[in-house]
């Protein structure tokens, strides 16, 4: 199916997302949060994005999705310059954004309905949407959760279900906004496992180096409204507290 998005568009070899000279100021503030920000995501790249609170990481994602309009600068997705809302409507179906708060994302009464929401919007019929939803839930280890009520899930289950809802649209790129916030170690490991198995380019915002070192290959940092690749940070091993103490436990 030709959806109008070539793998190699006119933006260059294998460029998926390209931001040029993006500037954005929060309403009611004087200092811009993004100031002449350039960024490129290439095919098969997995990027970890770090930066202090309020440095504009989430805003950057929302600009890529066309949810927030930058004051200046251009957004190119799959080689196409995004000008109007209409351009983004098509692009959004190919980029999956996982929100910080899963309650924002899971709004249908049951898990199955929520995961099927995206595919139904993309024009799949009821049977196809249901099949996709069940298949996706199985893939993330949530089989049997189809009829569970979304509001009654645990925080970890909500996050994984929200991820399934994003994956059900079969996006070409994933944008994950602090996916580990509020998760326990077990769920975090589960998430890492799912993300490693996914063969997709992605950008992950996180404050956890450990998590990023396991799921991404390149580290970028945001400072003064700009992004620098491997901005003075590199992954390394270090010693940390052994939280289990003397309780009997296994290392796997």
């Amino acid at each position: 199916m030709d959806d109008g998005y070539g793998v190699c568009g006119m933006g260059g070899e294998g460029i998926l997302i390209e931001l040029r000279g993006i500037g954005y100021t929060y309403p009611g503030r004087n200092i811009p949060v993004l100031d002449g920000c350039d960024f490129t995501l290439y095919e098969s790249e997995r990027i970890g994005l770090i930066g202090s609170n309020g440095s504009g990481k989430t805003t950057l994602f929302h600009i890529m999705m066309g949810l927030v309009k930058p004051a200046v600068g251009t957004v190119e997705i799959f080689g196409k310059t995004m000008k109007k809302e209409k351009d983004f409507v098509k692009a959004r179906q190919r980029i999956g954004l996982l929100f910080q708060d899963s309650d924002d994302q899971l709004f249908c009464p049951t898990v199955l309905e929520d995961v099927a929401f995206g595919p139904l919007n993309m024009g799949k019929n009821l049977g196809e949407a249901r099949d996709i939803a069940i298949r996706t839930l199985n893939a993330v280890g949530l089989s049997g959760f189809e009829d569970r009520i979304t509001t009654k899930l645990s925080g970890g289950e909500k996050r994984i279900a929200a991820l399934a809802a994003v994956l059900a649209m079969e996006p070409r790129v994933l944008l994950l906004d602090e996916p580990t916030t509020g998760l326990d170690e077990v769920t975090k490991d589960r998430l890492i496992d799912i993300l490693i198995r996914l063969d997709k380019p992605m950008i992950i915002i996180s404050h956890e180096y450990d998590f990023l070192s396991k799921t991404t290959k390149i580290l970028c940092s945001m400072k003064q409204g700009r992004i620098s690749k491997n901005g003075g940070v590199h992954f390394h091993h270090h010693i940390h507290a052994h939280v289990h103490g003397d309780d009997p436990h296994k290392h796997e």
């Binding site: 999705m65 929100f99 994302q105 709004f107 995206g118 919007n121 994003v166």
Partner: peptide, 13 residues
């Protein structure tokens, strides 16, 4: 606002 954005991201029309 956040819910609406999340819905738009999943192709809500």
């Amino acid at each position: 606002e956040r819910v609406y954005r999340a819905m738009i991201c999943r192709g809500f029309n």
